[in-house]
């Protein structure tokens, strides 16, 4: 069982990545450029889900690669694929970038007893998109990773966990957070429908 788990995780890392990482670790700095070119475009799209401006996304991706180079010795292919590891760094870099810019706006919503059980039946994708835009970036990203990418909560927990807590604790936190986000969206959409 354990072997199968390790094998499945390890297979996510392409042979090419594995060879490049070995070369970088043995001191061939130029090889890192290959990683930048192969993972950069996907990372830009990933970061683009959190930050809105092209320039900001470029800064975040650049910082991500520099941080990845500095911590390459810490990368463990048995825990996650290289792209997931890079996404983990990019996620925290993007949030740090937003905090520096103070763009994060938390909604002062009253989460009282009158939270509707379901999303309003008349809700359209456009309305939901508009409501999602009002959420903090962390919550938007959680929805993207869970609902759009369809990733398991354990993988999302690996990306979002920064405090060094156990993955199970982070999974539990994310599960509660998803529940709160849905509540928040119901309130926003109900208000939008009322207006």
């Amino acid at each position: 069982m354990t072997f199968r788990l390790f094998a499945s995780i390890y297979s996510r890392m392409t042979n090419e990545d594995h060879i490049i990482i070995q070369r970088i670790r043995s001191g061939e700095l130029r090889e890192f450029g290959l990683l930048v070119n192969s993972h950069g475009p996907a990372l830009m799209a990933f970061v683009g889900r959190i930050v809105e401006q092209q320039e900001d996304a470029e800064d975040v991706v650049q910082n991500t690669f520099v941080a990845a180079y500095e911590h390459l010795k810490d990368y463990d292919p048995l825990r996650a694929s290289l792209s997931t590891w890079l996404q983990r760094i990019a996620y925290h870099e993007a949030l740090y970038h937003l905090r520096k810019r103070k763009r994060q706006v938390l909604l002062p919503l009253d989460m009282g007893d009158d939270v509707p059980d379901e999303l309003p039946e008349t809700t359209t994708a456009e309305q939901l998109d508009e409501a999602i835009q009002e959420l903090p970036p962390e919550d938007q990203m959680l929805l993207q990773l869970y609902y759009f990418d369809g990733r398991p909560l354990k993988e999302i927990a690996y990306i979002t966990n920064a405090s060094g807590d156990s993955l199970n604790r982070e999974v539990s936190r994310l599960s509660s957070q998803l529940h709160r986000i849905r509540q928040r969206l119901r309130i926003i959409l109900t208000r939008m429908n009322d207006e």
Partner: peptide, 19 residues
């Protein structure tokens, strides 16, 4: 419902090209 809503956000993100 979430998937088509999030698709729009993804389309915006996909426009960001690596320099």
């Amino acid at each position: 419902l979430f998937r088509p809503a999030l698709q729009r956000q993804n389309e915006r993100a996909a426009k960001m090209k690596m320099p």
